[in-house]
Design a protein around this nucleic acid. Structure first.
Lengths: 280, 280
DNA sequence: CCTTGCGATGAATCCATAT
DNA sequence: GATATGGATTCATCGCAAG
């Protein structure tokens, strides 16, 4: 499992490492491949927002562009009858179970898995979590304010997304949950977002505080890197994975900025700084 | 399917009918048996709160009377246990699919199914809904105020229950949802409740308004009958089913009161009025 | 009438012990 | 060792009594 670590570049760095400091490591690559290179019991919590549909509910959707695919997800998914999408739903669940199973090894005993999902994928996500060996412990809704979701006339709007959480085995210790936690998350989807699924920083900050200070957070699907921004802002270590070069660069820039060592100036200058990792 | 109707008492009443007016019919009996006696396409929406069969990781935790299972402190909320709460997860899903499948026939095309569930049974409920032939269309959380659930130190509390909804086939028409609907329900569990799972009237009223005025609502697990109270209060017709005699009587009394024809006086007098139905 | 204090409550969950 | 059982635990809030 740790073979890649030993065969990597100098300093024991896996070949997927794009940027690394003592507080933050960013990998660019496939989640499953990078997971295989991570040592066991090295992380306190997996906090991640996997692609909800992993490419749409039907084969045709998967062939479209990413932009179009996700922009239309809300309505398109809701109109697909169950019978027709069984195969793809099963494939999504299988894929989730794969990386969840491997993440179970990387997270320490009693560590946490915290996953974002939408209503349509919620049952598949809880199944996959348990198939991956985790103990499913609950659901926390995330309520989006009006204007940040697509209302449907005369229907219940899909105004909520959901946080599914579980633990690696028993959970004898207290998590760092604020006693005044309201029971569900409120957060406005960022207006100037750099990723279609970018999460509100407020919500991520609340989640990050569950991990003990100085602990390590893993995000397998960074996107624009909000999880990492919240982690370093709250004094937690962060390990992030992103397969798309553009988003890996975006996440690195935003996390560097959060750590206070971003290079001021236009994007071009910042980009230079980002090129110390191998996108392969 | 409609054999029972024809073989019943005079006026074409099924033998399970306990009380009937033009606005409300209450059946006492098993949900599946009563469903078989109901005509096809006769109802606009199934709105019901089935026994959750939750409350334990192992099978034994679910067995035994519901009185002991759910009431662990102080006086019992209700000394009468309710039925159907002792299934393991597979059996629960199978059983739900059975009555959901039969209810699909009774509800008219484009009619709705609206089901309460808790976090643990949510995935099983959405599976059963679809297995029963319904198109699953969404989840609406019901957020309970602090003090009405059991918090756990340092953890996310199970502060929400969930409403799962779907339709019989396509849903071309608008449902009667208030455009200002907030996307999730807020409601305090009643303090002086007559059933351990009694729902807030406010929440039921919001749900009932989805059905067109004058339409018919079906509840297969009435309990204390809040669904019926809300239905008649909002000018909808109601068909209710409850297997436990005590709760059937409670529901009838509360719905009669909501219809404004309750007999004033002590419980003994009211009870006399209720005996015009055959508990068998 | 307002404040303080005390006891009761919750569709529960955990863990040590027994089988 | 796995499963079943029983008792302890959880805390913000509410109702009600007392001050």
């Amino acid at each position: 499992m740790t073979e890649l670590l030993e065969s990597g570049p100098a300093r024991g760095t896996a070949p997927s490492v794009r940027w690394s400091t003592d507080r933050c490591t960013i990998h660019q690559g496939d989640a499953l491949a990078v997971l295989a290179s991570l040592p066991s019991d090295s992380v306190d919590a997996l906090i991640t927002d996997p692609p909800y549909s992993s490419g749409g509910m039907v084969r045709g959707d998967r062939m479209g562009s990413t932009t179009g695919k996700y922009v239309t997800t809300g309505r398109a998914v809701a109109d697909v009858p169950f019978a027709g999408d069984t195969r793809d739903q099963r494939a999504y669940g299988y894929w989730c179970a794969l990386w969840l199973s491997e993440a179970l090894r990387v997270v320490r005993p009693s560590g946490l898995a915290i996953l974002f999902t939408d209503w349509r994928q919620l049952p598949t996500t809880t199944d996959a979590l348990q198939a991956g060996g985790w103990v499913w412990r609950g659901i926390v809704p995330w309520v989006k304010p009006a204007g940040t979701y697509r209302p449907q006339a005369g229907r219940f709007a899909a105004q909520c997304e959901y946080v599914v959480w579980g633990s690696r085995g028993e959970l004898p210790v207290r998590m760092g949950i604020d006693p005044t936690f309201s029971g569900f998350f409120h957060g406005r989807t960022p207006r100037d977002r750099e990723h279609i699924a970018q999460k509100p920083l407020d919500v991520m900050l609340e989640l990050i505080r569950i991990v003990p200070p100085g602990g390590t957070v893993l995000d397998l699907f960074m996107g624009s890197g909000t999880t990492g921004v919240a982690a370093v802002a709250e004094g937690r270590r962060f390990v992030g994975v992103e397969v798309v070069d553009h988003y890996a660069a975006t996440a690195e820039r935003r996390i560097r900025a959060a750590m206070g060592d971003a290079v001021p100036g236009p994007d071009g200058q910042t980009a230079l700084l980002l090129d110390d990792g191998d996108p392969g």
